[in-house]
């Protein structure tokens, strides 16, 4: 079981309190009705599924109930960092030497 830091509660809590909510920074178009098939496909169906660093959404569903973003390494399962929903993708990751 992982420990996840909720950026709203500002503390680490056990994974049981959280639920994954898929890839982060997938933006729903303000004019979604007018979107092309290709753009809608990218928005709705296509996901990165990387080996390594992934940006994803989590919800502290059994805690403060807020959605937030997390950077996780899919190889080690380690959470690199978490940040609030709406904040931009971090330009630099802590300890990103390798």
């Amino acid at each position: 079981m992982l420990l996840i830091r909720c950026p709203y509660c500002e503390e680490e809590r056990p994974e049981l309190e959280f639920r994954n909510a898929g890839e982060a920074h997938v933006v729903r178009s303000a004019n979604i009705a007018g979107e092309s098939d290709d753009d809608f496909e990218k928005f709705f169906f296509i996901r990165a599924n990387p080996k390594g660093v992934i940006y994803e959404r989590w919800r502290h569903i059994h805690g403060c109930a807020r959605f937030f973003n997390a950077v996780r390494d899919t190889v080690t399962d380690k959470f690199v960092m978490t940040y609030k929903a709406g904040e931009p993708k971090p330009a630099k990751l802590p300890g990103a030497a390798k």
């Binding site: 639920r19 729903r28 919800r59 109930a65 807020r66 709406g86």
Partner: peptide
């Protein structure tokens, strides 16, 4: 409820 919260918090804040 989760679906509504998701949109309210992240798409339509």
């Amino acid at each position: 409820m989760n679906h509504m919260e998701d949109y309210l918090q992240t798409e339509f804040p």
